[in-house]
């Protein structure tokens, strides 16, 4: 049975719990140490975005198997104000919150798959996946 869990994201303590849950999923799916570290770090960046800009939300952690390839997919969803200019938000150094602005672009670089949907006034959904080589 492949893992499929949804965790809620309400406080900065939840970011730690999400890092641990993503690590455990990546270990279960036997991702290499660097791949594990990348997906956990990407999860940490996106979780903080969901919390700081989306006002909290949920993350779904899914184990993936396609033939001999294994992976982890993460879906972050919030019902916050949305991102008016997604292209701009993906650029390094762009921030409205006083951070480094590496979150979205960094998470994209650390992932094999990256998708973002955002509607102003409705919320944001970011999906990433990391696969075994």
């Amino acid at each position: 049975m492949l893992r499929d869990d949804t965790l809620s994201l309400r406080s900065s303590e939840d970011i730690v719990l999400i890092r641990q849950a993503v690590r455990s999923a990546a270990v279960d799916l036997r991702l290499g140490l660097v791949d594990q570290t990348k997906i956990v770090t990407a999860a940490s960046e996106l979780a903080r975005n969901t919390l700081d800009y989306g006002g909290g939300g949920t993350v779904r952690i899914q184990g993936l198997q396609e033939g001999s390839r294994r992976g982890v997919r993460l879906t972050f969803e919030d019902k916050g104000p949305g991102i008016p200019d997604v292209e701009r938000a993906l650029k390094d150094g762009y921030t409205t919150g006083g951070g480094l602005g590496l979150g979205l672009g960094g998470a994209r670089r650390l992932s094999n798959e990256f998708a973002i949907e955002s509607r102003p006034g409705e919320g944001t959904k970011v999906t990433i996946a990391r696969w075994t080589a």
Binding site: L33, V34, Q36, T37, D92, L102, R109, L110
Partner: peptide, 11 residues
Amino acid sequence: AVAITLVELGL
């Protein structure tokens, strides 16, 4: 692994 990830993150 942390060093590799940090640099790819852009930091």
